[in-house]
């Protein structure tokens, strides 16, 4: 495990350790985590086989449409969702808004997503995620960003993609970037790892760990633009250990059916026949946005550093 600081442990038993935080994400592998905005949607997601739900007030597609400042969700809504389902519940805090994170921990959510989908509260600092018992997942567009988040205490990483677009192109770009940079590190000798750490702007110890493991020291999911079963399988084949699906499900014509189909394609990501069957008659997919027409200011992936 990481050589970075972890929560204090007693000889008897210890909560909030790196092992239980990262281990929680290990349990989600191979699964689909779905954005939901109310208890009813949470139940649909659970029925479809989601491994967890992300409770938020508006899905990213609506945040895009509505504009304005996007914040942590209403605690009542989060608690209703916790009550409604038996699977883990995640919720989003703004980047650097450590009080929203404190509130989410007090509500008893199982994971906090310090998310670029919400409007950042701090343009320099992310939250110190070691300070919490609740584990954090953070987005990343490249390896350096992923390792900075892990250094801050993130116990799970998701490639960012471009949330709320229904367009998988950015998800592919970011996941490929992370995987390629890891592969490059594998080929470096010890002399080169110091310079690599400097270039990645990440702690040397973590860079060395990744070079040895050939993977991140935490679970890596993919997010931001997955809208179809084939999209989900694509991200899995590219090396994601699971997928987040945001607007793609509840902005489509038949959410229950699409949710189940995406779960199926995520499990059998390497079986085109099953993916084909899962893709039949799903009704309308979310409309989607071409990412190259998105102005820079509307690119969520640029938030966080």
């Amino acid at each position: 495990m990481s050589t970075l600081p972890t929560s204090p442990q007693s000889a008897e038993s210890a909560i909030g350790t790196s092992r239980v935080k990262r281990g929680m994400a290990e349990q989600l592998k191979g699964g689909v985590i779905m954005d939901v905005v109310n208890a009813e949607q949470a139940k649909i997601a659970e029925d479809a086989g989601a491994v967890a739900v992300m409770a938020l007030e508006r899905v990213p597609a609506d945040i895009r449409k509505d504009g304005g400042v996007a914040r942590m969700s209403d605690p009542n809504m989060i608690e209703e969702i916790i009550e409604a389902v038996s699977i883990p519940v995640m919720a989003k805090s703004r980047i650097g808004h450590f009080v929203e994170a404190q509130v989410l921990q007090s509500l008893g959510v199982d994971y906090i997503d310090e998310s670029e989908v919400l409007t950042p509260a701090d343009e320099v600092n992310h939250s110190d995620k070691w300070a919490y018992t609740t584990p954090f997942v953070c987005g990343a567009t490249n390896l350096g960003e992923a390792l900075r988040r892990i250094a801050e205490g993130a116990a799970m990483i998701r490639s960012k993609g471009e949330a709320g677009t229904g367009n998988v192109v950015e998800a592919v770009r970011h996941l490929r970037q992370i995987k390629n940079e890891i592969a490059r590190l594998r080929g470096y000798d010890n002399n080169e790892l110091f310079a690599a750490a400097k270039e990645l702007r990440a702690p040397y110890e973590l860079v060395k760990e990744v070079a040895e493991l050939g993977k991140l020291p935490v679970v890596l999911f993919s997010a931001g633009g997955v809208a179809t079963p084939a999209d989900a399988a694509l991200m899995r084949q590219l090396g994601a250990e699971g997928v987040f699906v945001g607007s793609g499900i509840f902005k489509s014509g038949d959410p229950a059916k699409r949710a189940a189909a995406i779960v199926k394609a995520t499990t059998f990501f390497d079986d085109p026949k099953i993916i084909a069957d899962a893709s039949r008659n799903l009704g309308e997919a979310m409309v989607g946005i071409n990412c190259d027409t998105l102005p820079e200011s509307e690119r969520y992936a640029n938030r966080g550093w």
């Binding site: 210890a14 239980v20 929680m24 038996s86 921990q105 609740t134």
Partner: peptide, 15 residues
């Protein structure tokens, strides 16, 4: 009993 030891905030390590 499922989740008998609690939610994630109660997850723990022990010998």
């Amino acid at each position: 009993r499922r989740n008998a030891f609690g939610r994630q905030n109660e997850s723990f390590e022990a010998k």
